[in-house]
Each structure stands twice: as C-alpha cells, then as structure tokens.
Write a protein that binds this DNA or RNA. Structure first.
Lengths: 350, 350
DNA sequence: ATGAAAGCGCTAACAC
DNA sequence: GTGTTAGCGCTTTCAT
C-alpha cells in the first residue's frame, strides 16, 4: 500500500510526473543505461550497484514507460481483436472466450486491444489501419466465413494472426478449433450407453461449417454406437434459439416412433427443448435424455441441470496466443491447425 | 484495394519497413516537420506544397506511427477495462456493453485495452501497473461493490475513470447507470394498464445495489398505479437463473390469491418462469403477464416472445466515454453521475 | 510558409 | 561493470 502512494505522484518528486530512468539514474548516481540494465539484465550489473539502483527504483516507484520501450522495440505488445456483436445477436461464448484470451495473452506479456470496424470503412481497412500505424503486433480472428477477406488480406501481407475456428479458405493460415463433431459423437455415445436407441439431433440450418460438423457428429456417433443408419426424420434444423428447440421437440415427440433422447447444437436450443418437454409432461432426464452444447453458465441452473458439451476455452486461448506469439517473434512455422477436443459435462438431463 | 498493397510492404521501398516521416519528407523534398504539418495542421502549409506532400503520403502509404506519436504526446489513447468473468458466471450483458463501449471509444479516438488481474496480485495493483507504465490513460469500471478498493485508489491518485453502475462509496467519482427502479416501475405500470391488479416480483437476494433498486421499482410502480400497498407475499427472491424463476413462479401460483402477472429482475429468471408456467398449463401472455429485464438476444425468440426492459447501452457507452475523455483532457468537472432511463420492449408475454 | 534544433523515455551498440 | 553515443518516429518550440 505504501508503495502505491508513490507510483503516480509523490510530494517529493513533483506532482503528476512519473519518474523516468533519468530520475532514477540521478538518485542512484549512475548513468541511465545502468538503470536500464538493472531492470532488463540485472546479472550484468555489480550487486552493490544493483542494490543501490534498485533502492532508488523502489523509492521513486519507477516503472519503465511502456510506450517508450515499445517505440524502441518496434512492437506494441498489443493484439487486436475485432469484437463481434451489435446486430449479430451476441455469441454467448464470447465473454468466456475473451476472458480466456485475455488471460492467456497476459501470461505472454500481451494485452488485447478491442476494435470494431465502423460502418463506412470495411473490415479489412480497420485491420490495415491498426497494422500500418503500428498499433498492434497481430490479430486474433473469430467468426470467419467462407473466403473471409480478412484472412486472405492479412495472409498476403504477412501480418501475424491466428483464427479461432476453421473455414474453407484457399490460403494457408493458423487456426485453433474445437472438434464439434467429436463432441456431439461423444454425447451420442453417452446416451447410447444410457440405453437410448432412438437419438435425435436438433441443429442449425445447413450451410454453416460449425453447425454442419456438429450434425456430422450425430451420424458418426450413431454409427459408432452400432445403432445403424441414422433416421433422417430424427434430424431437425432451425435458427439458433429456444424457439427452434421447443418446436423441434414438439415435432419429434409427435412422430410415430419418437426419440427417447436428443442432442442439440446449442444450449439455447436445449433450453427450448426442456421447456417443450415440460409442457407435454415428459420428464427430461428420466423419460427423455437431453444434451446441450457450450455448457453455458446457465446450464447447471436449468431444470433439470443440463448435460452439455464444454469447449476447452482456456486451452483454446493459450494455444492461440502461443501460435500468435511465435509468428510475431518471426519464427513463422508452417501455418498450423490445432483441433481441441471438447468435454461432455454430465448432469441430470441425461 | 490498390492502396492496401503499399501499407505494409512495398517492393519499391524496402520490404517490411513501414514508411516514416523521413521517407515522405525525402520523397516530397521537404523537411519532416512539413510532413507532420500536412498531417496535423494542413492549413498551415502552402496548398502547392501540401499537394506534393500528400501525393507522397498516398504513394508511400504513409501512416503516422502511433507509438511515436503517443510517446511525444504522453498519452496512450487507450482505456483500460478489466474484463469480468471467469468464475463469476458471465454477465449476459457483457458483450453488448463491450461492443457499445468499443464503438463509443473509437468515435473519440480511443481503444479499449482488456486486462484481468492475475491471482497473486490484487485488483488495485493491476490497475496501478497499467497507470504507472503509461499503458492506459484511464479506466472504465464495472461491477463495483460497496467500498470498492479500485474506486478509492484511483480517485485518490487522480487517475481518470468512470464507473458503469452506482455503489455507495464515500468518495466522489463519476458514474453512469441505468435506472432499474424506473424500469421495473414502468413494467408494473404497463401490466396495470393491461388490467392486472396482482403483480408479483421475482428478484435477486437482498443486498445488491442493482437488485434492491429493481425491487424498489416494483413497490413504486404498484403505488403509482394506485394498486395499494404491495403484498410482501408477491415478492420472491433467489439467485439469478432460470431455476429461481421456475421455483418462484410455482410458489406464486400456489398461493391462495395468486398473481396474474410477474416482473423479474432478469431475463434468465423470466425464462424459468415461462417454463414453469407452461408446465402448469398456464399460458404466458394471455393468462399470465411476464416481463424480463435486459432484453437479452434470446428474448424475442422465447415462447411467447418476452417483454423485457432494455438498457440503453449505446447511450451508456457514449456517456461513459464522454465523461472519461473530459477527465483525461484535464477538464475535471465535479464528479458527475448520469442516470439513464431504460425502455420497455413490449412483446407477446404481456 | 518552411526548416533547424531539441526532446519525449527508452535501449542497443560500443567504448572505456 | 559502467558510461557514452546514437536513435526509435514523432511533434513541439523557435528561427528564418
């Protein structure tokens, strides 16, 4: 606490002005280079001198100015992240991912810089600007679409970046993704092990890379469990949201040979399915197995608590930052793709 | 597009090295100060010279280096924001708020820098570090609690900051908040106008500033609508989440004189209430009015679509950034509190 | 209207 | 080991 008092203003050293190398050098009666050495390569400095300088540093509350350091290092130690959102409806995964990314970046001495493209300028320009002005050292991208212009542009310019998620783009680049196919397949396996034989899937409309892979997981899972060819009638699709879950489950339960369990492409869909099941007097968990995707914060609080597929976001963050810093450092290994495995969190709904 | 090609590397001017003032000066046969003037105070430069310099700028794709500029200006044009999350469960409002804040900051030439305190060092140290190293010019705080140490520390040091939300702290500071009391009161008024006379409230446990104010709004609203003194039996509380909503509604509907409408402290609670209503065969909207809080992205997709109280986050963001930049600029007016009014978005659930 | 000098705070490179 | 010199890229003075 006492230390804090001197960080910004000190009655002794002039209000408002943060101490610089020069102040420390003067106080310790050494050159400023020696101060710099004490901070950056202490082993090069004589222990006695070092102690004297360190005392001055502590006394003045000196902290090296980041901008001056960065200017000389020609690096900002900042990573740009274009925050999605606005009209897009808000990805429920966002805050967990952002948190994990921020944490991972800090461990490597980086910070995240958030930005949004304004309406007039396009996405690419926003990124270009940040690079040209030296504001960031690289980017983390998410929600890329087929043939994403950011990916090709950054790739051509040799700007370091790593993508969260895979998309078919005919340019090599580094990405980290979570294997949704395996995740759904393991949910199916789990339900099969619980004795379910007719297992349905409620997913998103065809055409999204992420959604299609999750649907594939359903097929894979059924086949692997020896439940034979998947019944197309048990695969229902709709826009993400509880309404799709509710309508789809209503539809499924009205079938001549209804499913006894359902895997969904998102917790939001599962919430709707849970609600529809209650309406029809079907008890989720006992009579009907339900599995969600993403293990959102509400999952444990639903009735019954929802079994869900959890993305290892902390690991995603660390991996992304690791790949990115390697590229920033110039060690540009071949573009790398890393596929991480999600984890099934079993609760009472299955 | 052609322009982009030169921003980073240009075959003509040496790969990898971004053009500097000196490069432009040389190309335009002027001194570098003139280049600087063309960029920052064009009116001071002779039109003819200006045109020549501008041509060189365009040709080389010159963009002033942000760090050099910041070093000299002794400002980073960065605002620190400690991203909540991790174990806290994830605030569903977060991504919308962050987006609004990012957008507002950009409009004023600022960027957001995200950080999280690590486990060893405390919150205050994380902020102190960012300030002492000149990494940020100020902070936006959210989720402050009673007697928040960050608030008092920053306030004492004269570090510019603005808080989203109010908390009782015996230190003057600037904040922006949304009037939850008025929001809930207007929801009650809306339900009363629809003919409801017994209106319940499902909120959070007593003790949170935000939650208590929303509960007060229920009282205010009932009184203002001339519905007499609120019935304590109609105010139920529990941790945020669908489960609380479901259990509370079950309880309320079992009362001898059950409510015909309910206002909740969050959309999450409302989701639970909606589900419980369906289970009991009560049709939300017609037989039971339900109003949520926050107008989260799922609200329009629930069954029935949920009436909810919407926080004007864009305005919150702009106001916060406005106050913050004023403080950063040194124009430190008396600490200012701004209370914004939320808006009731009426859908079929009421 | 333009240029020359100086310096923001720091560190790499080389001297001593 | 330590100090000196130089320079990162930019923007202020202040001359001219």
């Amino acid at each position: 606490m006492a230390r804090h008092g001197r960080l910004i203003t000190s009655p002794r050293h002039g209000a408002g002005r943060a101490p610089t190398v020069n102040d420390v050098a003067e106080a310790a009666a050494v050159s400023r280079q020696t101060v710099s050495n004490v901070v950056n390569s202490p082993e090069r400095v004589h222990p006695q001198t070092r102690a004297r300088v360190q005392a001055a540093i502590d006394d003045l509350g000196y902290r090296p100015n980041r901008m001056a350091r960065n200017l000389q290092a020609r690096a900002s130690r900042l990573v740009g992240y274009r925050i999605p959102g606005g009209s897009s409806g808000g990805n429920p995964l966002l805050d967990r991912f952002l948190h994990a990314l921020t944490e991972a970046a800090r461990a490597d001495g980086y910070h995240l810089l958030l930005f949004t493209p304004d309406d007039e300028r396009d996405e690419v320009d926003a990124h270009a600007d940040l690079v040209a002005t030296g504001t960031v050292d690289g980017f983390v991208l998410s929600e890329t679409d087929y043939g994403d212009s950011r990916v090709s542009w950054l790739s051509e310019r040799g700007v370091p970046f790593v993508v969260f998620g895979r998309t078919n783009i005919d340019v090599p680049y580094s990405w980290v993704d979570v294997d949704g196919r395996t995740g759904v397949a393991s949910a199916v396996a789990h339900l099969a092990a619980r004795g379910h034989r007719r297992i349905a899937f409620i997913g998103w409309p065809e055409g999204s890379a992420t959604g299609d892979r999750r649907a594939e997981g359903w097929v894979t899972g059924l086949t692997d469990a020896g439940l034979g060819a998947p019944d197309p009638a048990l695969c229902v699709r709709g826009e993400d949201g509880p309404r799709t879950g509710a309508e789809a489950l209503d539809h499924l339960l009205r079938l001549a040979d209804p499913p006894t369990a359902v895997v969904t492409a998102s917790d939001l869909i599962a919430i709707g399915a849970l609600a529809a099941a209650r309406t029809r007097g079907v008890e989720a968990g006992a009579a009907l197995g339900v599995v969600g995707f993403d293990d959102s914060p509400v999952a444990p609080h639903l009735l019954p608590p929802l079994t869900s597929i959890r993305q290892p976001l902390e690991q995603v963050g660390r991996t992304i930052v690791g790949l990115l810093t390697a590229r920033i450092a110039g060690a540009a290994p071949d573009p790398d793709g890393v596929l991480l495995t999600p984890e099934l969190v079993v609760r009472q709904s299955s």
